[in-house]
Every structure is written in C-alpha cells, then in structure tokens.
Write a protein that binds this DNA or RNA. Structure first.
Lengths: 350, 350
DNA sequence: TTGAAAGCGCTAACAC
DNA sequence: GTGTTAGCGCTTTCAA
C-alpha cells in the first residue's frame, strides 16, 4: 500500500505562478487565448507542484466524466470461460483510449446486482453505457432507460422496434443469420444431406438468428436434427450425444459457436466417427484459441469481435458528441445500428 | 441512444419533503439520528422524484469514490487469448460488489498508454488500484507510486524489497515454485529421468519461480532440457520442436503453463509420440477450458485464480478501511502479502 | 433532532 | 488576455 499525499489544487498552482485560478484552468485545458509567457509560467508551476486536476470537481461543473460503462450481464459462469467478451472489451478499450475516455466495467452475477448497476448508471458516473449479452427477459434495458444514459447495445436486443421511447435503439451486431446460411450452404456444397444443428441459448437473438439461418437453407429439416444447447463445450457434448442417438446416420453438424463445436468434436472422436470423413463439423465465431486448437482444426464462421467492440464505442462516443453540439433533441446525424459481415474460414473439419 | 434527463438534486428532495438539505443527506446516508417520521417523509420524496445522489459532488467532499482501478499492463495480444485475466477479474468483481465498490478497468496496450494511466490514477478517480502482469522493467510501479494510490499487486513484483518507500509492497501470488516442484516430483515419481522444462517469459516472476522450482528438483538438469518460451500455444509448439531436436530421448515435459503445454502436446502427437507412454506432460494453471480439452487431458498444477482476484480486492479494501480508521501513518494491522498454495491435478497426460 | 452555512476544487460567464 | 465571481450538488461542522 502506498501513501495518499494530499494533492495540490488549482489555487496552489495559481499562487505559485502568480496568476488567477481561471488562467491556470485555461492553460490546463489547452491554453487557448493565454499569452505564451504565462502559459509557460503556469506549465512550470504545474510541473513543480505535480498538479493533477481533481476529476470530481471538474465533473461536477462540466457534467462530463470521460468514462463509459461496459455492462456485462451474464449470470452464468460462461462469461469468463469464453474469450468472446475479452475480445470485445479489448476493442472497446482501444477505441476509448483514443478518445481519452475510461472504461468502467460492471459485471452482474445475478438479479441482485441489477439494482446496483442501475444506481451506478443513474449516479452520473459515466457519459454512456455499452451493454452486452441481453437475454430476452432482461430487466436491464428498463433500468438503463430509467437511468437516462446514452447506450449502445452489443448484439441486437430482443425487443421489438416499439421500444424507441427516446431515440431509436442503437446496436452493433454480426450478420448471424447470413453467416449461418453460409456455413450450412458450405456443408451442402460438400455433398452432405443429413445436416444437424446445435443451437445456442434461444433467449439470445444471436442464437435465434443462427437457427433461422440454418432453417433458411435446410427448409424442411428433420426437427430431430435440431437440438438446443447453451454455447458451452459441455453443452456441445451433450447435444452431440443426443443427436447421435436420435439420428445415427447424420453426416454433418453446424454448431452455433466454436465452444459447442469443440464439445461435439470430442464426442464424435470418442464414438469413433472420423471428422470430416464421416461427419463434417462447422462452428461459429472463429475464436482462435478454440478453433485452431481442436482436432481437427475447426471450419467456422468468423466474426470480427474486436471490431464490434471498437465500433460500439465509436458509435457511443459519436452520439455523445452530437448531443454536445446541438444541445436539444438532436435529430440529424444520430448514429444508427451496424451489422457486420461474417466470413467462412475453412480449416479441416468441413 | 437514450435521453439524459436532468436529475433532481438534494435540494429538490428537501423542498418536496419540507426539510433541509442536511436532513435529506442524513437520510440518504443511512438515516442515523433522524426522527422516524421525517425519515419516512424523505424516503417518499426520494422515491417520487427518483432521486439518485450525484457521485461527483459527493466525492468532491468525502474524497471517497467507491471505485477501484484494475490495471492490466500487457502489451501483447496474449492477455485476451488467456482466460487467466478474465478469472481474476471475476474474483475481483465479486469482492468489490460485496463492498459496493466499482471496478474501473485500465488496459494498457503499449508505452504510450502509461501516461494516461498515471494521470488517471493521480486524478483522484479511485480509492485504490489492483495491478497485474508486471514485467521486470515496467515503468508502472513508478507511476503508481507517483500517483500516491494504495495498491495491491497480482503476482510478486520483480523489484527487491528496497522498494518499500511508503509501506511495504502488498501482493497476492501463488506458490509457483512449490507448485513447480510438485509437478516435477510427480514426473520423477513416475520414473521419468529426462525431464524437460518449457519456461514462461522470464521477465515475469511467476515464470522465474516455476523455473526455480524445476531446478530445485532437477538439480543438475541438462541445460539443453530447458527452453525458453512465452506462455502461448504457438510458443509451446516451437519450444517442443526445439526440445525434440536437441534431446530426442526426453521422456517428460513440464510446461510453465497449460497453454504452452497444449502446444507441446500437439507437436508430440504430430511427431507420433504417445502421451503419456512415450512422453509425459504436466502443465500449470489448471485452466479448465484448456486443460480438460487437450488430448489427452492435461495433468497440471492448479492455482485458484479467481480466489487470487478476490483476495487482492479484499486486501486492498481492508487497507483502505484501516487508513480510514487511523488517519495518520497506520502502523499495526496493515495488510500484508499472501501466497496461495497450489495442488497437482492428475489427468491423463502424466 | 434539525437547520444554516461553509466549503470541497473546478469551470464559465462576465467584467475589466 | 486576464481576473472576479458565482455556482456545480453534496457533506459536515456548528448553533439552535
């Protein structure tokens, strides 16, 4: 532990430099319209005293915080077994850094945490929020709306467009449906006909969209070939066993993400089915540490997760700027949602 | 994006409840020493107006922030290919939540970011800092010290004890050396004699400690059996190839972490060496998604990473409380470093 | 028990 | 250009 020395204030710097507080403030905030010699003098005083502005005081008057909350609402353990969030965080962090904004991470581990998050958001700590992993029945959007904080969502939220209470909902998403279609078409192109799908949790839109994409191609798929799962390796194993039991003759599997695909691969190996000769497998995400590590390496649908994070931050910050420019009811130029393309990455599994 | 309504202030609540600001403040902060009827009246006004305290204003006077910075200084991409940090974060987040404190994440992607972090820490945004992944030549400790922020380190920092400028350095670490010893002894117990070691980056103390543990047991190890690496799967592959070239007759490998062990396993399989029959492999970390997923599943040294995170937060908060109690130069009761035990987890690879 | 009043450190009009 | 002044919203003595 280190000591907390009491820090010098603007006042002290002003005294030392022999100018007024206002002048110091001007210099500290860019130095526009201050004589060069004074700027110099103030800079020196700042340096000598080791002055750093007190943000609480600054925020109190400017009402800006240069901080953005990232809310990750994922009760399950999964969040952290999955590089997904980490990658998004990284993209966000990079973009925020460029704009000199800080990242405040709010993780919720259960319903009890929601009140805390709501309080925090409403407490005027941050300029905006980035929100992930919404489930259909999530109370979070309500809280956020109540807190009145500008928000960009990661992944299309599940509610209908009616929710445009104050301005449209802004989100960044991948083309989950299109990506899924491409994956399944690839399997079809390889000559497979009995293609199964291991879904993600269907209370999240990305899982639903991937299922829809699967159905787009396999228009009259045998319902026994679709089995629900949860994006985890263990869930993937379970689903694969179920599938093998229901339809031993299946010849391909499209898993809703790489993690569940890895579980499926394990079961296939265990059961002596060769991949891709007996059963071809395609995943989704292109999570490198997973997809490249499986045996055989996984053919999968790539989405640029880091870019999604970066984009979310960019949209949010742009929106904040907008709002700053025209203080009331900004109409034109408000940012709108973005859907990023996906690409199929061919490896050995299909 | 959502609208930012201007929030009601203490003043407004006071007016509505027909009391003074001071009374409202008391009620909001617990309500000690206020007549029950008034408490009730104020609570109702708060409710009706949807009042939430402005934290900037509060911090300005209390000098507390109920926020802790987590600094992750890892220039390489590795940070996020590795569940390690995510797990620590999770432990930290849980503990902070209990104490109603917020987590502010500061990621540094390169030297340029350091100044920003220093500024932030010094800016009085947070009550303390939790710092990870220090490399030997890291400028971060200096910055932190300059910022005068109470800090707990994750992993023993590399500097000598002399650095106790203001109070001893507090850290939380695993018993890396002991764990390594146990791993190697296990291999010895299995009858292996030509045991190799794939190290981590030796500018981090955990990697050095694991190497030391290896040497403790293999007192006069053939230097060709020790090869440097970097904690990544690819690094592990490279190291394994190198080892196989230098010493084709090796019969066991202790890798400094699971990720590099997974790379080593892949190379061994590729070269047709059976694991564990021809070459036994032990990792370190017991990162479940890695260790259980490898083929064969990895025998490894488990460290409770989430617990480390939790403990770091706990030590920091305890220190802050201490400091709150006795405002000057707290002597007794200051928290001190903790080293957590490790355990060997036997799976199939050794 | 409650209220009045004095700031916390800073910015932003507004004068000079 | 530079200084003066009035708050931002809250907590916290100090009196009543």
């Amino acid at each position: 532990m280190t000591e907390t020395a009491s820090r010098p204030t603007l006042e002290a710097v002003a005294a030392r430099a022999g100018v007024s507080r206002a002048t110091v403030s001007r210099v500290v905030n860019g130095g526009e319209g201050v004589r060069e010699t004074l700027v110099e003098r103030v800079r020196r005083a700042v340096e000598e005293l080791g002055y750093v502005p007190n943000q609480a005081a600054r925020s109190l008057v400017t009402r800006r915080h240069d901080a953005v909350a990232v809310v990750i609402a994922e009760p399950e353990t999964r969040v952290f077994a999955d590089p997904f969030f980490a990658l998004q965080l990284r993209g966000i962090s990079k973009e925020l850094t460029v704009h000199d904004s800080q990242l405040v991470l709010l993780l919720t581990e259960g319903r009890e945490d929601y009140a805390r998050v709501g309080r925090y958001l409403a407490g005027g700590h941050v300029d905006g929020a980035l929100v992930f992993s919404l489930h259909l029945d999530d109370p979070l959007p309500g809280l956020i709306h109540g807190a009145g904080v500008p928000t960009v969502f990661g992944g299309r939220p599940g509610w209908s467009d009616g929710m445009r209470v104050n301005g449209p909902t802004v989100y960044v998403d991948s083309d989950n449906r299109g990506g899924a279609r491409e994956a399944v078409r690839h399997l079809v192109g390889l000559g497979h006909t009995r293609i199964a799908h291991i879904t993600g949790p269907l209370d999240q839109t990305c899982a639903v969209d991937r299922l829809d994409g699967f159905r787009d191609v396999m228009v009259d798929a045998d319902p026994r070939l679709i089995v629900g799962s949860d994006f985890t390796p263990v869930g993937g194993e379970r689903a694969m066993r179920e599938l093998l039991e229901r339809c031993p003759e299946l010849d391909a599997v499209f898993a809703a993400n790489d993690l569940s695909a890895s579980g499926a691969l394990r079961v296939l190996r265990e059961r002596g089915r060769r991949v891709p000769e007996d059963v071809a497998v395609v995943g989704f995400d292109d999570m490198l540490p997973v997809a490249e590590q499986t045996d055989p390496p996984l053919t999968t649908v790539r989405q640029d997760i880091e870019e999604m994070g970066r984009l979310m931050a960019r949209l949010l910050l742009r929106g904040l700027e907008q709002r700053g420019r025209d203080e009331q009811g900004s109409v034109g130029g408000a940012p709108s949602s973005v859907v990023l393309p996906t690409t199929l990455v061919r490896r050995a599994s299909a």
